[in-house]
Design a protein around this nucleic acid. Structure first.
Lengths: 206, 206
DNA sequence: GTCTATAACTGGATAGAC
DNA sequence: GTCTATCCAGTTATAGAC
């Protein structure tokens, strides 16, 4: 069985989506290659036909998650103002924390990344820049975009760590209000179209 | 050797400070009990005379770090306005990221905590509330204190993950300015004295 | 209280059959 | 390309000597 050309690509995709989910929920160390492959319907030996190491899989999974989120939430080259407000609302929602949906590797893996090799950290940094570009639109200055992304990514990361649902909810609400209100406080004009963010990716959401 | 009553307390303290440093730098999984005990000048077998599990050590190390930071930076029952501004400056500094100094478990372990058991997560949540109380002073409303702590903890966590020193520095600067300026924007009066924050602990800094 | 020694297990990674 | 079998390094935890 399975010598047709597209079979490998499908297998790889199954491995990636499974790994992305597991890594986001449990981090790098607590996910085993065996676990990923079993849930993807294969055995451990087959893994090395697709990736050369666990670390490479980790980076590719982060990238795949970011691509999927961008394709889902940003059509064309840039998000409109309306799309942007919706993204912020979904990102800073309780569903983002506990749903079956995919989770943002920026928030869910932030303190996992500092321990990883340069290749993985470069990917994460690129994805981070991609989200700043999207959230910043293009008109406002970079610092304000950075601040809002810190409230988004930091807010979700902290809300997920807290062992108190009420406090988590209050914190998400606070961050959502802050991100949305700070936007209109700094500049009235936003959105438009930009053409270049190359390999910059947005976050992960629904 | 070593049957005097204080010897055990000193051993425990050495284990705790060693563990706190290693955990903050490398996370729960990548630190072994053997490594902690060796660096503390003992062998693995001795560990279980002090703690019943690695997870218990993890929680106690977080708590010990928070206590040490509070004792160092907050004298009396509450921080003055001047102390507070200094704390924020030190917290959102490059030295906090890479120095030999102790690191804040809130920022360095934020996405590590979500994977741990309830006992550890409760401790982390308590320490988080402690920092909110300190940063919030007492006059301003809780939401603004939450927002500023998100900028502090989230900012440091993200700056540590980024593999680009310039961007890290810019992000820390942005967060520092935002935390300090947002404070005076919300309420003119701050600081005073409060008597109860019980087990709430501040962060970790210098 | 601290040590050595070891049990029982799981991890990533490779070799070779099909 | 995927499988089974295996190697080897590392983990937590316990038993028992001193």
């Amino acid at each position: 069985m399975s010598w047709n050309p597209e079979h490998k690509a499908r297998s790889r995709q199954r491995i990636l989506t499974t790994a992305a989910r597991l890594f986001a929920q449990q981090g790098f160390d607590q996910v085993s290659i065996d676990q990923v492959m079993r849930e993807a319907g294969m055995t451990r030996g087959a893994f090395y036909a697709h990736f050369s190491s666990k670390s490479e899989l980790y980076g590719e999974a982060i990238l795949a998650t970011a691509h999927a989120a961008r394709d889902k939430h940003v059509q064309g080259t840039s998000a409109t103002q309306q799309q942007l407000e919706r993204i912020i609302g979904v990102y800073l929602s309780e569903e983002h924390l506990s749903g079956e949906t995919l989770h943002c590797p920026l928030a869910f893996l932030v303190s996992d990344i500092a321990q990883r090799d340069d290749q993985v950290r470069d990917i994460w940094t690129r994805v981070f820049r991609g989200l700043v570009d999207i959230v910043g639109g293009n008109g406002e200055d970079y610092s304000h975009a950075l601040e809002r992304v810190v409230l988004m990514v930091g807010g979700v990361a902290i809300a997920r760590a807290l062992n108190d649902d009420d406090l988590s909810k209050q914190l998400l609400d606070t961050c959502r209000v802050a991100v949305l209100s700070e936007r209109q406080a700094t500049s009235g004009d936003n959105h438009t179209d930009r053409a270049d963010h190359d390999e910059g990716k947005p976050q992960k959401i629904a």
